[in-house]
Simulated assay, not measured.
Amino acid sequence: MTNFAARRTMMVDTQVRPSDVTKFPIIDAMLTIQREDFVPAAKREAAYMGENLDLGEGRVLLEPRTLAKMLDALDISRDEMVVDIGAAMGYSSAVIAHMSEAVVAVEESESLSAEAQDALAEAGVDNVVVHMAPLTEGAPQHGPYDVMIVQGGVEELPLGLQDQIKEGGRVACLFMDGALGEVRVGYKREGEISWRRSFNAGAPVLAGFTREQAFEF
């Protein structure tokens, strides 16, 4: 019988804390939420590895360090509404729910959405709404949001998503340029987002989040 509780503690002690993530709400959430319940059954044994976990359908569960550092940079508070783009089976949303008022988990895959609903209910997380829609559309009907986070690589953030961030709100994205990537946090002021570099990471670029290629003769 695998001791997942011990693996969870080890994940926090060897992947999260050494990455300078020390905020109590993040540590507490990552020690509490059972990551193995938010991955396909065949991948449970790999749930706590320090790398992105392939979920199929071109999607990954971001490595614990990347998610923890994104949350650290966003500094989410208890009274904030968060939209989690590409929530997959709901792990990131469950973690964020632990430190925010409510989370809208946007997922376009029917199977992943259903898995997320089940896993979140099983975990007793009751402040997450799973919203099935194309990731590039988000969930404008529930917004605007204090915070947005994208669970995967992007080359650019669609304007329709930028519009769902409140004035004064913020967003974390993992921008990929070929094989290299960096997480940036954007702050919305007067309708514009200004980006600040946070740390290096990597993940496959989500479908629909690639940059439009300029047409050349």
Results as ranks from 00 to 15, higher is better:
residue 92 S to T: 09
residue 142 H to P: 03
residue 129 V to K: 09
residue 156 E to P: 01
residue 32 T to G: 03
residue 40 P to Y: 03
residue 143 G to E: 03
residue 101 E to T: 12
residue 201 A to R: 05
residue 84 D to G: 01
residue 113 S to V: 04
residue 139 A to P: 03
residue 116 A to D: 01
residue 17 R to L: 13
residue 145 Y to F: 15
residue 32 T to K: 14
residue 76 I to E: 00
residue 134 P to G: 09
residue 88 A to W: 02
residue 49 M to Y: 14
residue 73 A to K: 03
residue 34 Q to V: 08
residue 35 R to I: 08
residue 1 M to N: 11
residue 186 G to P: 07
residue 123 A to N: 02
residue 135 L to H: 09
residue 131 H to Q: 03
residue 34 Q to P: 07
residue 1 M to K: 12
residue 16 V to F: 10
residue 144 P to W: 01
residue 148 M to H: 07
residue 168 G to N: 00
residue 8 R to M: 04
residue 130 V to Q: 04
residue 32 T to E: 03
residue 31 L to V: 01
residue 214 A to K: 15
residue 62 L to I: 10
residue 28 D to T: 05
residue 206 L to S: 06
residue 161 L to G: 03
residue 164 Q to N: 01
residue 216 E to I: 14
residue 115 E to W: 12
residue 36 E to M: 02
residue 166 K to T: 12
residue 169 G to R: 03
residue 4 F to S: 09
residue 124 G to F: 09
residue 136 T to E: 14
residue 104 V to E: 02
residue 46 A to R: 14
residue 52 N to E: 10
residue 14 T to A: 08
residue 9 T to F: 11
residue 182 E to A: 14
residue 180 L to I: 11
residue 72 D to E: 15
residue 12 V to D: 02
residue 217 F to E: 05
residue 177 D to N: 15
residue 88 A to S: 14
residue 163 D to Q: 12
residue 188 K to C: 07
residue 12 V to P: 01
residue 8 R to V: 07
